[in-house]
Design a protein around this nucleic acid. Sequence first.
DNA 1: CCCGTGACGACAT
DNA 2: TATGTCGCCACGG
Length: 110
Amino acid sequence: MDDINFFDKVYQVARLIPVGRVTSYGAIASYLGTKGSSRMVGYAMQAAGKVVPKVPAHRVVNRQGLLTAKFHFGGNLMAELLESEGVKVKDDQVQEFKTVYWDPNIELAL
DNA sequence: CCCGTGACGACAT
DNA sequence: TATGTCGCCACGG
């Protein structure tokens, strides 16, 4: 697994996120073992839309449940995508965040 | 090759 | 509780 690029690892985990659930950059980073490099996760997501299969980057938010990435998606697209999957979003913020929160460290429990 | 930037997070004040 | 600063590491210029 060490042969896989850091970005690819991020994509792998991101694709494991169930519909109607969201996770945080730090959670993914922690799962990968690069807890301090949460920024790299977000950076990887930047290219997520360029990779295949398509990575649900819209399901990844910051630790506060804030749609920091919506600015990059453009307009309200990210929020609409989440709501389309059943995730309630208000004021660029995920409602019931702790309820819809999906932690790879727990769910994958590896 | 060096510098600045950035989808974040934790700690310090 | 809120605001400010530092660390993290990859990529572009």
